[in-house]
């Protein structure tokens, strides 16, 4: 069980949106994390330092939250190593092949009313729901 947190989730979501809006207004770029991360891989272009800085900001975020609130950021990550390796590969491969992930398609793309992003978001939501159902209620049940 995890606690239902509508207000914190809404505020957190709004901050994600604010970051996406500012990146577009200031630099004209889509805040898609898979796009930013995958373009750090060779060949390296002139946006390398900016993209790396964005990722460094992401990595620093939980420490900033801990510094402000004085409380540790808690999370539960599966310790099934083969599963997490497979999951990571599928997430990386699928996001780049499909041209985006939860942020690029799910937030920025939907907000631009992109048909591609609507199709991608519906598709990955559907396969994610089915995957969890199979893992928890077919195999695990």
């Amino acid at each position: 069980m995890t606690e239902f947190t509508p207000l914190a989730s809404l505020i957190g979501g709004a901050l994600i949106g604010l970051s996406a809006v500012l990146l577009m207004a200031l630099e004209g770029r889509i805040a898609g994390i898979s796009g930013i991360a995958s373009r750090l891989l060779p060949p390296i272009d002139e946006r390398f330092a900016a993209r790396l800085a964005f990722i460094v900001g992401l990595v620093a975020a939980p420490f900033a939250v801990e510094a402000v609130t004085g409380e540790p950021v808690l999370q539960t990550v599966s310790s099934n190593i083969p599963l997490m390796i497979a999951a990571g590969f599928l997430v990386g491969f699928g996001a780049v092949l499909g041209g985006g992930c939860t942020s690029g398609h799910g937030v920025c793309g939907l907000s631009r009313l992109s048909v591609r992003s609507f199709v991608a978001t519906l598709t990955f939501m559907a396969t994610a729901f089915v995957t969890v159902f199979i893992v928890r209620h077919v195999i695990g049940g």
């Binding site: 599966s78 497979a86 599928l90 491969f93 092949l97 499909g98 992930c101 991608a120 396969t127 893992v135």
Partner: peptide, 21 residues
């Protein structure tokens, strides 16, 4: 490519609970 990629991405997301961000 879009649909295949998104489908694979969703499977990985559902297995690990992580997307890239």
């Amino acid at each position: 490519q879009l649909v295949t990629g998104a489908a694979l991405f969703g499977i990985g997301w559902g297995l690990g609970g992580f997307c890239p961000g």
